[in-house]
């Protein structure tokens, strides 16, 4: 999560270590950069500090470093400045609440729950290597645990051993998988998947697709075809298209979201790899510019490392 305001227990420990000398200091340096975030914002907002341009510039830096992007960052800061004036805010630490409010305002617009009716087909899309297949493994686990009948569809027929990879996840979840040969037409795998889902009465159908860069016209056409097949063949089903985004991705994620949305009507985002040091702030820009909600976050490679996204919690977590 974008938890740069969160108090980090490790921090004190690190400060302790620092006394050990230069070498240790250097060694701890990197962990500290990460934790510094919290320390930094606290020092920025420490009591008695004046609210001036410099303060806002420092907040700006924090947002930029979280990949929020220049445009959205400026928008947030501008709004904060106006409100700080309106509300005659004098103490710097009140600014924190304002910042929370601004981000929350962006994230909660049009918020509606992620409702899964039966049957629902979830098409998982995204650029290469973001975590699509792994996320399907995690989602299958989640829905199985909720007592749903889950079916996996191996529509990545392109990448070497992609089908084998999904099969491993099917095995781990003990659920069925529909697959063709490597190199076959992905739309026809989906076609067969839907047929099987109907016959077997599956509740949740999770379709893996090949990673593709959004600027590859032919690959996006291929994806549209998959989407059309799903719509046509599964008219009684709820269809969700979830875009998987890697939290380490920078500004390009906005472009990815925009083009995937145009192509296959993306209804939500899954933000992966938040167990690293990246903040995934780009989803704030995406929400602000394209109104696509975040549905899940990935926090590891394990089967349980998936959490539902909730913007209120999300913002609260920023300031806990």
């Amino acid at each position: 999560m974008l938890n740069f305001f969160k108090k980090n227990k490790k921090e004190d420990a690190n400060l302790e270590k620092d006394k050990k000398g230069l070498y240790q200091k250097l060694k701890d340096g990197l962990t500290r950069t990460r934790n510094n975030f919290t320390a930094k914002i606290d020092s920025i907002l420490s009591l008695g500090r004046k609210i001036d341009d410099e303060l806002f510039e420092e907040l700006e830096e924090i947002l930029i470093l979280a990949d929020v992007g220049v445009v959205t960052t400026e928008k947030i800061i501008e709004n904060m400045k106006i409100k700080a004036k309106e509300q005659k805010i004098k103490e710097a630490d009140k600014i924190k609440d304002l910042l929370a409010e601004e981000i929350y305002n962006i994230m909660e617009v049009n918020e509606r729950p992620f409702n899964i009716t039966s049957p629902t087909l979830i098409l998982i899309v995204g650029v290469n290597g973001v975590g699509k297949t792994t996320t399907i493994g995690k989602l299958a686990n989640k829905y199985k645990n909720e007592g749903k009948k889950v079916l996996l569809v191996a529509a990545d027929t392109f990448r070497a051993a992609a089908i084998d990879q999904l099969e491993v996840w099917a095995g781990r979840n003990n659920c069925e998988i529909i697959k063709h040969e490597e190199g076959s037409d992905p739309a026809s795998v989906v076609f067969d998947g839907i047929k099987a889902a109907k016959a077997r009465g599956a509740d949740i159908i999770l379709c893996d697709t090949a990673g593709r860069l959004h600027n590859k016209k032919n690959l996006m056409e291929e994806l549209k075809k998959i989407y059309r097949v799903a719509q046509r063949e599964f008219d009684n089903a709820n269809i969700e298209t979830l875009l998987v985004l890697d939290a380490t991705t920078g500004q390009n994620a906005v472009q990815q979201a925009k083009i995937f949305k145009e192509a296959v009507n993306v209804t939500g985002i899954i933000l992966t790899k938040l167990d690293g040091t990246a903040k995934g702030g780009i989803v704030i820009s995406i929400k602000s510019e394209l109104d696509i909600p975040v549905r899940f976050i990935g926090v590891g490679e394990g089967i349980d490392d998936l959490q539902e996204f909730d913007s209120e919690k999300f913002v609260r977590a920023l300031f806990e």
Binding site: L30, I64, D67, D246, T248, T249, G250, G276, T277, I282
Partner: peptide, 17 residues
């Protein structure tokens, strides 16, 4: 990955160190 954002410095520094 060429699309990596701000965090790339932490990644590169760690691997290099």
């Amino acid at each position: 990955d060429a699309m990596t954002g701000q965090d790339v410095v932490n990644v590169a520094e760690s691997f290099n160190e």
